Amino acid sequence: MGVITYDMEVTSSIPPAKMFKAFVLDADHLIPKILPQAIKSVEVLQGDGGPGTIKLITFGEGSQFKSVKHKVDGLDKENFTYSYSIIEGDALTGSLESISYEIKISASPDGGSICKNTSKYHTKGDSQITEEHIKSGKEKASGMFKAVEAYLLANPDAC
Rank of each mutant, 00 (worst) to 15 (best):
M19T: 02
F20S: 10
K21Q: 15
F23L: 15
V24Y: 03
V24A: 08
A27K: 11
D28W: 09
H29M: 10
L30H: 02
L35P: 00
L35I: 10
I39E: 11
V42W: 00
V42T: 14
G47P: 02
D48Y: 12
D48K: 12
G49P: 10
G50I: 05
P51V: 07
P51H: 13
T53K: 03
K55H: 03
S67M: 05
H70N: 15
D73I: 01
D73H: 07
G74M: 00
K77M: 11
E78S: 11
E78H: 03
Y82E: 01
Y82M: 07
I86V: 14
I87Q: 08
G89V: 04
D90R: 07
A91G: 12
T93M: 09
T93Y: 00
G94D: 02
G94E: 00
S95N: 06
L96D: 06
E97N: 13
S98W: 04
K104V: 09
I105T: 07
S106A: 07
A107I: 00
D110W: 08
G111N: 08
G111H: 09
S113N: 02
S113D: 02
S113A: 11
S113G: 10
C115N: 07
C115Q: 07
C115K: 04
K116E: 05
T118R: 11
K120E: 10
Y121T: 01
Y121C: 04
H122T: 04
H122S: 01
G125N: 14
S127R: 00
Q128A: 14
T130F: 01
E132D: 13
H133K: 14
I134D: 02
I134R: 05
K135T: 13
G137V: 08
K138S: 09
K140F: 14
M144C: 13
